[in-house]
Design a protein around this nucleic acid. Structure first.
Lengths: 193, 193
DNA sequence: TACTTAAATAGACTGCAGTCTATAAATTAT
DNA sequence: ATAATTTATAGACTGCAGTCTATTTAAGTA
């Protein structure tokens, strides 16, 4: 059903894509997001247009490169098992805090780009923000089904509070420690039931 | 003890400052933050350097102009009176949501600038974010003193959750309605005591 | 072999924020 | 008056992301 290249014209050079992503993430980690496009394409050994054939903006390239580094994957909480959902939430938050603590500067910059560029905003939220929101919403719904939190509460709003606290504390340089993760889970599950 | 100009050299033209702020807020509301510096100084009828003698960046000028519009002032909750603190919190949140809803686009852009430019970041947080955080922290401490919420909880963390939810929902274009304000207050005061 | 098509390249170009330079203007001090 | 000092002005300049143009290259098709 696939696998027939059926392609007319000069084929895309995949090596250029990976070289660009590698150069981008390396230089951004070295020099920060402010590194110039020119520096990136020179390090990758490709022309300017080749970059813009693949990504619309520097931000999209860097986001892709960032994901390729793959320490951004969140392990979905195990809702099959029997662990208290409060504990699963705390574990999830600790894990996300870890990612944010190791790449906070870059995440801040990408968030900023997302506010400025509507095209990138869509990409950033679809690829980064929404999947994480879904994980927490599912976890909280499951907790409601198990009667660990009140079914009348709104999982989406609670997710706003949790991820909101995460971003807010990142933006204002407040610490994101394991203790904070546990306290946040505690706030949501406060009172039991 | 003051009022002696005691000033050597050509005096600063205050009219230029107000003309710049007026031109800035007008053009930003008309065309968005992307309006050029050149357009702003031409509308104000001053030279480029005159702007940079007064503000370090476009963002600082726009922030000043934004504050001058003054619909950004939050009325501090009345902690002398006897109203339930849950109600005071809901009123505060409704008011802030109102400001955010009328100038969300601009606030998003200023937040983005704050992430990119450390100098502006400091200014933005000192003038905009911190005062609001203080108001909520004071309100929650007062609620603890009145035994309306558990004294063991951390007002700073609850403030992260509340303002975090506000910014998060602004950033991802989720609505900030009066109902949401009330629900957020309800989440914090859930269970009474 | 020619022809068509898509991708790659070098490098010029645009529009922007912010800096710098040289000069003029407005004020106090001598 | 003259000097010293600070602000204002016009406009050139820098460095950047992203676009555009002309040309070349690598593939499929006739």
């Amino acid at each position: 059903m696939a696998d027939e290249p059926k392609h007319v014209g000069r084929p895309k050079n995949e090596a250029a894509s990976t070289a660009l992503k590698q150069a981008a993430i390396m230089l951004v980690r070295e020099q920060g997001y402010g590194v110039s496009i020119t520096a990136i394409i020179e390090a990758a050994g490709v022309s300017r247009q080749t970059l813009y054939n693949r990504w619309a903006t520097k931000a999209e390239l860097v986001l892709d490169a960032f994901f390729e580094q793959a320490q951004t994957q969140v392990s979905t909480p195990d809702l099959e098992g029997d662990a208290p959902r409060r504990r699963l939430l705390a574990i999830y938050l600790r894990e996300v805090f870890g990612h944010v603590n190791s790449d906070g500067e870059l995440l801040r910059t990408l968030l900023a780009e997302a506010q400025i560029d509507p095209g990138f905003r869509k990409v950033f939220f679809e690829r980064f923000v929404s999947p994480r929101a879904e994980i927490v919403i599912d976890l909280l719904r499951d907790a409601q089904a198990r009667n660990e939190i009140d079914a009348a509460r709104d999982p989406e709003l609670m997710t706003s509070m949790l991820h909101g606290a995460l971003w807010y504390r990142l933006l204002i340089d407040q610490p994101l420690t394991d203790d904070i993760a546990d306290e946040l889970a505690g706030e949501i599950f406060r009172g039991g039931r």
